[in-house]
């Protein structure tokens, strides 16, 4: 369990009354959630329930139909306002399938954003940064020459994480980081998520339905159900909740538990 000191009043990401529909399908109905600076919060919920949609709102890939998204004290999007340029470099995201640039090798995947955003940076410094990022995810420097197609699922996720931290973000968003991985590799990813919080001091938002992962990496867990956050609390609070929907989800039961 992560052990970083968190100030409850220091809010990094605020979602207020977030609403989003895709065509006739109302995905988010009223999502309100405060994420504290330095914490790791996990959003759990059923597949297709809108968890990734919340992440995409946080990082400015989607504009809400209603409500507001604030990051680091700054409003980034409302239905009538959308300015995500200023917060982009504060945030990194690990996509569900890695979303690595297939035409570039591992080193270039990490170096691309670094090189483009720091034009005055020498090639030696960039390569040193790439080596450092690879070491942070426990990969050898020679790994940089591998193409994404040569990597296993776990390695792709780790490389995607290295790319996400290349610009030293303050916030890291993880979209289903352990989906499709075996339990051992999943645990490696869990340890990396904890490492990132402790070594880099980042605020982390993890979206998953893997409860083992959620219990291990989270300071708090929030449950999304039918477009609303129906419960939010520490791991122990969520484990001991009386909410039947949360109970059903965390115990993996087909039917709602009876009181």
């Amino acid at each position: 369990m992560p052990g970083v000191k968190i100030d409850e009043n220091d809010i990094m990401i605020e979602l207020h009354g977030l609403r989003k529909a895709f065509g006739p399908q109302q995905v988010l109905r009223d999502v309100t959630l405060d994420i504290r600076r330095g914490e790791t919060i996990t959003i759990i919920g059923q597949s297709g329930g809108g968890k990734s949609v919340i992440l995409k709102h946080m990082i400015g890939l989607l504009q809400p139909d209603g409500g507001e998204v604030r990051v680091d004290g700054q409003t980034i999007s409302t239905p009538t306002f959308f300015d995500t340029k200023t917060i982009r470099q504060k945030m990194g995201m690990l996509f569900q399938n890695g979303a690595l640039f297939d035409s570039m090798n591992a080193g270039e995947n990490i170096a691309f954003a670094l090189r483009e955003h720091n034009r005055e940076m020498s090639e030696e410094t960039i390569q040193a940064e790439v080596t450092e990022k690879l070491e942070m995810i426990h990969l050898k420097p020679e790994f940089r020459w591998k193409m994404p197609s040569e990597l296993s699922g776990g390695m792709r996720k780790r490389l995607a994480l290295a790319r996400a931290i290349a610009l030293r973000p303050k916030i890291l968003l993880y979209d289903e980081p352990t989906t499709g991985l075996d339990p051992v590799t999943s645990d490696v990813i869990n340890d990396l998520i904890i490492d990132m919080q402790q070594k880099l001091g980042v605020t982390s938002v993890v979206v998953t339905h893997d409860m083992a992962s959620a219990y291990k990496v989270s300071d708090r867990i929030a449950m999304l159900y039918e477009g609303r956050i129906i419960a939010c609390g520490t791991v122990d609070e969520i484990r001991g909740t009386d909410n039947p929907y949360v109970k059903q989800f965390i115990t993996g039961q087909r039917k709602l538990p009876t009181a």
């Binding site: 982009r88 996509f95 979303a99 691309f112």
Partner: peptide, 18 residues
């Protein structure tokens, strides 16, 4: 499809430019 365009945007790399 593989979210590479979103990944570029998230890294503050403009897909139109690159």
């Amino acid at each position: 499809e593989k979210e590479e365009l979103d990944a570029m945007t998230v890294l503050d790399l403009d897909p139109v430019r690159y």
